[in-house]
């Protein structure tokens, strides 16, 4: 299977069937999608549409029943657990709706974790962590615990943690879901800035209209299929609706 230089994620014929008792639930019914390197892509869809399932497959957190997901040249289905862990550690950065920082660790310790998993000593890892925390504007909060900083700052720590291993892709699941309007905007702005600075591809699953206007591509997922794919300029964002479609 060939994948051209500027395509970083390629999903082909991805299906997922869950067995729920005697009933088979088709969460995904065959999704084909290509994501270009350096793109800001948003996945949209009501809950139950298969949005999260698809998102988790791109992140290597779930395996498709049929079909393939290739990320940065790695066919995720063919990898064993340790290779998958390596890809997660070196190639992907995860950002979560509820930040998912380790509560007992300081900002610096949280951000140094991916580096330690990559094989660095804690001292080396802390150095890299301090550097990236400064980049996201938290150079003065290194020794604070997550509970001692605001929601927006917690998400900044999470972004630093996602970036510290210089991944190819950032996967953000509703990154602004737990933040107020203004802070959410700041986080979107920061993600866009980091995308430019490090040449990273950003993939988000979102409901947030602010997020859509920052996107290069928007994918609507409905009933387990990619209902519509629109590049920047092909969709119009207005309050409450996109191209006349109301958001779930």
């Amino acid at each position: 299977m060939s994948i051209s230089e500027d395509i970083i994620v390629k999903a082909s014929g991805v299906t997922k069937v869950y067995q729920l008792g005697a009933e088979a639930v088709h969460a995904l019914r065959g999704i084909d999608l290509e994501v270009r390197r350096g793109e800001y892509l948003s996945i949209l869809g009501p809950s139950g549409s298969g949005k999260s399932t698809f998102f988790n497959m791109v992140g290597g957190l779930d395996r498709p029943t049929e079909g393939n997901v290739e990320v940065d040249g790695y066919c995720l289905q063919e990898l064993n657990q340790k290779q998958l862990a390596w890809v997660r550690c070196h190639k992907m950065g995860y950002i979560f709706q509820s930040f998912n920082l380790i509560q007992t660790m300081t900002a610096l310790e949280n951000v140094s974790l991916p580096r330690i998993f990559a094989g660095e000593t804690p001292a080396q890892a802390r150095e890299a962590a301090a550097e990236i925390l400064t980049v996201v504007g938290l150079g003065h909060r290194l020794t604070h615990l997550p509970s001692q900083v605001s929601g927006g700052q917690q998400q900044r720590i999470a972004i630093a943690r996602a970036l510290v291993n210089r991944p190819s892709i950032i996967l953000a699941d509703e990154p602004t879901g737990n933040l107020d309007l203004k802070t959410g905007e700041e986080i979107i702005h920061l993600l866009g800035e980091m995308k430019e600075k490090f040449g990273i591809t950003v993939i988000t699953a979102t409901h947030d209209m602010k997020m859509l206007s920052a996107s290069d591509t928007v994918v609507w997922i409905k009933d387990g299929r990619a209902d519509r794919i629109a590049r920047k300029g092909e969709f119009e964002v207005s309050i409450g609706t996109i191209d006349g479609k109301t958001l779930a």
């Binding site: 299977m1 060939s2 994948i3 230089e5 990898l79 862990a85 310790e109 998993f117 094989g119």
Partner: peptide, 28 residues
Amino acid sequence: QTPAATSPSIIPEQRHVTWAVTLQVSWA
């Protein structure tokens, strides 16, 4: 970056974190 999907055999495996480092991380 290779244009074709990388064969699984040449993808590195994640290495184990040593006991000493694990202790340092868990200590916090």
